[in-house]
Amino acid sequence: LVAGGRRLGGISPKRPQSYTRRPVQQIPGGEVENARAVFCNAISIPTLILISVATIGGLRIIVASAFECLSQRRSVVSETVFRNRGHADIPHAFVLGVAGSPRKGGNSDVLVRQILKGVADCGVRSRGVQLRDYQYQGCIGCEKCRKTGVCKGLKDGMTLIYPDFLAAQGLVLVSPTHTYNITAWMKAFIDRLYCFYDFNDHRPRGWSSRLAGQGRKAVLAAICEQPDAADMGFTLEALRYPLEALGYQIIAELPVFGVFDRAKVKTQEAVMQQARQMGRALAQALSA
């Protein structure tokens, strides 16, 4: 309202009072309180309400989508393998490649891609995963899987890997040598396959694998910086023994020596050819 060219009550004729910005007052207590005062005076109450509603709505959508995604993947695990408690369904002619290196774009990644190229040469579908991209941990020994047949003690990144692992008749495991052995990432991955064993009640317990007898096959590769085979230690054995226990037939193994620099294995033409041929051999074995 304007009277005699003057504003009454400090109200602007162009803006309602509720949207008028009050001058910022200095509040005792330091810069934090002053910053809060600036923010509160700069934004009106209706604006804050709209921001709050939009934020809460967005969070609800994100949370709901995440739970739906995890639920769908968990249902895939249950339907794929544990419909019959005694046996898993027969997997498809599909290959899962797993790289166990913490180094992005390293030699393990290169070899997995090269092996999967060989798989693709034979017209077999495949997918590669890098374990470093998933947040997960090793088996905690809760034994909940003894009742459910699936890992229920942990809800983490392995929940996203299990469906592809179960659906894949072919498996590619590649790990660099860390202290004469596979990496911690690969070890944790293998330990989380414990849920696919059945045990009896005797001591020591007899055991069997629900994945056995399905024609599952695998190829393995290990990369070591040192040229001496002794320095690779137990890397290949740590990959081979658990898979054989689960019922996999190992088609081929590829030890690579004298390679450390990132992606340096690309310069070794013979190794790259061997890796691609391993992929072809795996695909052909699955198709036989």
Rank of each mutant, 00 (worst) to 15 (best):
M186H: 00
Y194M: 05
R216K: 11
V256F: 06
I115D: 07
Q249N: 12
Q273R: 14
A229G: 02
D231A: 12
E237A: 13
D231Q: 13
G206W: 06
Q274T: 13
R203T: 09
Q268P: 01
Y241T: 07
D109K: 05
F260A: 15
S44A: 10
R127T: 09
A252M: 01
V119I: 04
A168K: 07
D164W: 03
V172H: 10
G29V: 03
L246Q: 02
C145D: 06
T179W: 09
V53D: 01
T47Y: 03
G138Q: 05
A283C: 14
Q274H: 13
H92D: 15
Y241W: 11
K217W: 06
G215H: 01
A281I: 06
F67N: 15
T80L: 14
C69A: 13
Q226I: 05
I61S: 01
L48G: 07
S208M: 08
S71H: 05
T148N: 14
V32T: 11
G247E: 04
S208I: 07
S18P: 03
L8T: 09
R210I: 00
Y180S: 14
F67A: 15
N84D: 15
S18D: 15
E33L: 14
C142R: 00
V256A: 08
I182P: 00
P242T: 11
A230M: 09
L154Q: 10
V119K: 00
S209D: 05
A218G: 00
G215W: 01
P227C: 12
S101T: 10
L70A: 09
I161W: 01
L239G: 03
L220P: 01
